[in-house]
């Protein structure tokens, strides 16, 4: 086993143990902290596929996160009020249904955004993804049917067949299981033919085209899948807070996801997990000391970018190995 694998296992076990330790200490609040870590990690796992593996610095993933959140909020509110959506489709308060809708809606948005923005690269790509996300953000603000600027409450956390999702640890385990499933998927993809083409296109687009693989299609597919994963995370986030608002789509959120990945290690399988754990811990610990905790986050980020380019994973496990 490589050092990276060992560290990955440690991270996975740490996150899993956290809520149980919290319960044992009689601090149930920490359970929701761990759940937050798992959900942000899942959102960042999605972004990592595009940003880390594909080198596509999307500054618009908050759009997918928010779309997932609104999918949960809108379906739940229709189910609660027993009002059908368009074309007499009923709402739903079942998580599996919500996740599928969230993934499809976010994937569709990612397809539209990606189809346009992947024709550009570099700074233009960053700016176009940002611009699209802001369009979704302002659309959510100006849509009174679902709360507009005030957001939309979810009266009761959505259910999962056979489980009581109102129990914090149960909900944590659902989020954790989805996180692990996404990591498993990304692990397979990373080492697959698709992953090889995607990572090669990041390293040298000209070369990839010269051997007969069109980078655009590879990237678009990665971008859509990336958006879908982040969308599911958004649905979970809405269920965690039992609330969804346009702020989930703001550029701060996009930035936060990028920061998570850089902290943890871009392009490393568990980079988003390490980043999310670190980020939520810092937010909690520093946030308890000062309201200006983001100043210190900024300093830490500066340190990582200057001295530890591979993020936390890079620091522990060294450079990535590509076989």
């Amino acid at each position: 086993m490589t050092r990276e694998t060992i560290f990955n296992v440690v991270l996975a076990l740490f996150l899993l143990a956290l809520p149980f330790a919290a319960m044992a200490m009689g601090e149930p609040f920490y359970v929701s902290l761990a759940t937050r870590m798992a959900i942000l990690a899942l959102a960042a796992v999605g972004l990592n596929l595009a940003l880390g593996f594909g080198g596509l610095v999307s500054f618009g993933h908050a759009a997918f996160f928010g779309i997932g959140g609104y999918a949960a909020g809108i379906l739940a509110s229709h189910a609660f009020n027993a009002e059908p959506l368009l074309f007499a489709i009923p709402g739903s308060d079942q998580m599996p249904v919500i996740w599928i809708v969230a993934a499809l809606a976010a994937g569709f948005a990612a397809f539209l955004i990606g189809a346009v923005s992947l024709r550009t690269s570099g700074v233009y790509f960053i700016m176009i993804t940002l611009a699209f996300a802001q369009m979704f953000y302002y659309f959510a603000i100006s849509w009174p049917a679902y709360g507009g600027e005030d957001g939309l409450s979810i009266t009761m956390r959505n259910g999962f067949p056979g489980l009581n999702t109102a129990v914090p640890v149960t909900f944590f385990l659902i989020c954790y299981a989805l996180l692990m499933a996404a990591l498993l998927l990304l692990w397979r993809i990373r080492d697959s033919r698709f992953g090889a083409a995607l990572q090669a296109a990041r390293q040298n687009e000209v070369r990839v085209a010269a051997i007969g693989i069109a980078p655009y299609r590879i990237r678009l597919f990665a971008f859509v899948l990336s958006g879908m994963i982040t969308g599911v995370a958004g649905a979970l986030f809405a269920d965690l807070n039992r609330f969804v608002s346009p702020s989930m789509m703001s550029w701060h959120m996009s930035g936060e996801l990028i920061v998570l990945i850089i902290l943890g290690g871009a392009g490393r399988l568990f980079g988003p997990v390490a980043g999310a754990i670190l980020f939520v811990l810092l937010e909690f610990l520093l946030g308890g000391i000062t309201e200006r905790w983001q100043l210190f986050l900024g300093l830490i980020l500066l340190g990582v970018v200057l001295f530890a380019r591979g993020g936390l994973i890079g620091l522990v496990a060294g450079k990535p190995r590509h076989g």
Binding site: R188, R193, A196, A197
Partner: peptide
């Protein structure tokens, strides 16, 4: 090796395979 494998993959024509480990 992986540089050349990418060319073999391109020749075989399918880069949309997601699960099998290339190595």
């Amino acid at each position: 090796l992986r540089n050349v494998m990418l060319a073999v993959q391109a020749r075989q024509g399918s880069s949309f395979r997601f699960f099998r480990e290339v190595m």
